[in-house]
């Protein structure tokens, strides 16, 4: 996908397992939303091939859409529409919708059902967006940053709901720049940056790595010069035994470490620009 001369997504190839949760992880501007919108049929790829449930999202959009649930990043409702009214409207467009009252209660919209959309908090708008995405009982849902702007309790509730969708046989594809979200939720994580896929695997695979790992846990903060001294020792050790050191990290190894190694950027740093 290119916009003008800027390439947003390039040579990206990934496959999603039915009934799984897949996270597309990356910093802002990495091409997450573009990737999702290409799957949703909003954008036509200049080259390459996209198939969702075996269908072309652009050419066969009308056939595909009723089977897909979409949660956009922000907005998507009339400013004066009441929360429940909006949800009920989307439900009416579907043949076998969920019970809207039960769904509203489940996602925690019970108290703001009569509130106009423009007066909902960011988190409430997110919950309504998620409810609208799943009310039509889709086979696959694409959720763009589902928990952005949610408080921790609402985030847990959302995670539970996404897990419940998976156990009911729904395929979930989400974008996130929260590492914890990908680690907690996803069966498969695809890390993208600058529109390119840079790593794929389960959170365990990504954090484990394929080669031998030596972990050193120390009992205090490193004093000045200690890190440099350790690096020097490791360097002479690796020469002596002819072992290449692929990476060395200080701190606890998490998915974030993987991300930093791969991109050289701090993902959490971008969080507030969303």
């Amino acid at each position: 996908m290119t916009y003008g001369t800027k390439t947003a997504v390039d040579g990206l190839s990934l496959t999603v397992e039915t009934g799984s949760i897949t996270a597309v992880l990356g910093p802002n501007g990495a091409g997450k939303t573009t990737t999702l919108e290409t799957c949703e049929g909003y954008r036509r790829p200049q080259s390459g091939r996209v198939r969702v449930l075996g269908l072309d999202p652009v050419a066969q959009r009308r056939e595909l859409l009723p089977r897909v649930g979409v949660m956009l990043q922000g907005q998507g409702a009339w400013s004066g529409v009441r929360a429940m009214e909006m949800l009920r409207h989307i439900a009416r467009l579907h043949a076998n919708p969920l019970d809207v009252d039960e769904l509203a209660e489940r996602v925690g919209l019970g108290e703001c059902g009569r509130t106009p959309y423009r007066r909902l908090s960011g988190g409430q708008q997110q919950r309504l967006g998620l409810a609208m995405a799943i009310v039509g009982r889709p086979e696959i849902v694409f959720v763009d940053e589902p928990t952005a702007g949610m408080d921790p309790a609402a985030r847990r509730t959302t995670w539970e709901l996404l897990r419940e969708l998976r156990s009911s046989g729904v395929t979930v594809v989400l974008t996130t720049h929260y590492l914890e979200e990908a680690e907690q939720l996803a069966d498969q994580v695809h890390i993208i940056d600058h529109g390119r896929l840079i790593a794929s695997g389960s959170p365990e695979e990504l954090t484990r790595g394929t080669s031998a790992t030596i972990r050193l846990v120390v009992d205090k903060e490193l004093p000045a010069g200690a890190e440099a001294a350790l690096r020097a020792s490791v360097s002479s050790w690796s020469e002596q035994y002819d072992i290449g050191v692929r990476s060395m990290s200080f701190g606890s190894r998490t998915l974030e470490d993987v991300f930093l190694e791969l991109t050289g950027r701090d993902i959490e740093h971008d969080r507030h620009d969303a």
Binding site: R67, H94, R137
Partner: peptide, 15 residues
């Protein structure tokens, strides 16, 4: 909230 068990199994289609 926990008491509400939704049947989320796919049953898609447009009205």
């Amino acid at each position: 909230r926990d008491a509400v068990r939704l049947d989320l199994a796919p049953h898609p289609g447009g009205a």
